[in-house]
Computed example of a mutant assay.
Amino acid sequence: MRVVSLVPSLTEAVAVTLPGVLVGATDWCTHPADLDVARVGGSKYPDLDRVRALRPDMVLLNVEENRREDADALVAAGVPVRVTYPRTVDEALTELADLLTALGAAQEPPWLRAARAAWADPPRLHPVRTAVVPVWRRPWVVLGADTFAGDVLRRLGVTNRYAGHAERYPRPDLAELRGHDPDLVVLPDEPYRFTATDGPEAFPGTPCALLSGRHLTWYGPSLAEAPAVLAAQLARTVTA
């Protein structure tokens, strides 16, 4: 089996579970740190000639991270693809188990069993806090309905003010965001790299939780440690 992954979290999942299966990944696939495979460009604009040249038995994609036209082009070229689209933690755990089995794993890896255990009873904020969750600025983009990261936060005791929005990634202006009067603002460090000096200044007087984007949005081995990491980051904000 020869696999090319265009999804960083799936790259990590395959690389640590089935060494030798992965032959290609994007330039943004940074985990594991010692990953040594051919690089095929970005997630949004991969070099499909490089992908095909690796003669993959399967290319891994995600509905949100990759473009439909790239998936269609690979299929038209006779390259098998597998497209993931988890919108909850449970869906992510199931999709990961099914994918690894399809790639030849004889049993669930230890990290996946640990992730199931970690999310069976994750730490929660008490009382539950309401939040807005920007994932981009210029323009502002926030988590809306039916998102994986939204489910992660819900399980940790954070209610997304935009969870009932008609769109999955609304684009409100800053005045609207402030008008929701949230208990806190959640600012992950990816896909936009919010920092202590880039983001919180837009929400004076409101606590801003700077969270690990990898633990908030990736579905792979980081799922096992995500509840503890994110809960600690949230707790530091609400108790400061």
Rank of each mutant, 00 (worst) to 15 (best):
L103H: 03
Y192L: 02
L60Q: 11
V59C: 12
Q233V: 01
V16M: 10
R67H: 13
D198S: 10
L210P: 03
R113M: 05
R137I: 07
A235Y: 00
A175W: 03
T239L: 11
L177V: 06
L174T: 00
V63L: 06
R171G: 05
G220V: 06
F203D: 13
T159N: 01
G220F: 05
L210Y: 12
R214T: 15
L61K: 08
D36I: 11
R137C: 02
P191R: 03
R214F: 12
G78F: 11
A38V: 14
A226F: 11
V238F: 13
V133N: 02
F203W: 13
Y162P: 09
R82P: 02
A224R: 04
C29D: 15
E108W: 01
Y45V: 06
P188Y: 05
P127A: 01
A25H: 12
A240W: 01
G220D: 05
T159R: 07
V133H: 03
H165A: 15
H215N: 14
A226R: 07
L54V: 10
L22Q: 10
S5P: 00
E91P: 06
D183L: 11
K44G: 12
W140T: 10
P46R: 01
V51T: 05
L6K: 05
P127T: 00
W218V: 13
A105K: 09
P182M: 11
L100N: 01
G213W: 01
Y169W: 10
Q107R: 00
H165T: 09
L223K: 12
T197G: 14
A117G: 04
V89P: 03
G164F: 11
T195Y: 00
V23Y: 15
T11M: 02
A202S: 12
L211H: 08
A105H: 03
E69V: 13
P19D: 15
A166F: 09
L35T: 12
A53C: 12
D173Q: 11
R161A: 15
Y219S: 07
A73L: 13
L54S: 11
V63H: 07
A102F: 02
E64K: 09
P109M: 06
P227T: 04
A209M: 10
A53S: 15
D181P: 00
T26Y: 13
A115M: 12
R161T: 06
P221W: 02
D72Y: 04
L216C: 06
P127S: 01
L93V: 10
E69N: 12
G150K: 03
W111G: 05
A77M: 09
P56F: 08
V135Q: 02
G205P: 14
E167V: 05
R87Y: 03
D151K: 00
D121S: 08
P191F: 02
R168W: 00
L100T: 00
T147L: 11
D121L: 01
G24C: 13
T26I: 14
D70S: 13
L103A: 14
V14I: 15
E201T: 07
P188K: 08
H215Q: 08
A196I: 09
T30L: 15
V133A: 06
P191D: 06
P191H: 02
C29V: 08
V141K: 03
R168E: 08
Y85N: 05
L10I: 15
D121F: 00
E190L: 11
V16P: 10
V59F: 09
A145Q: 12
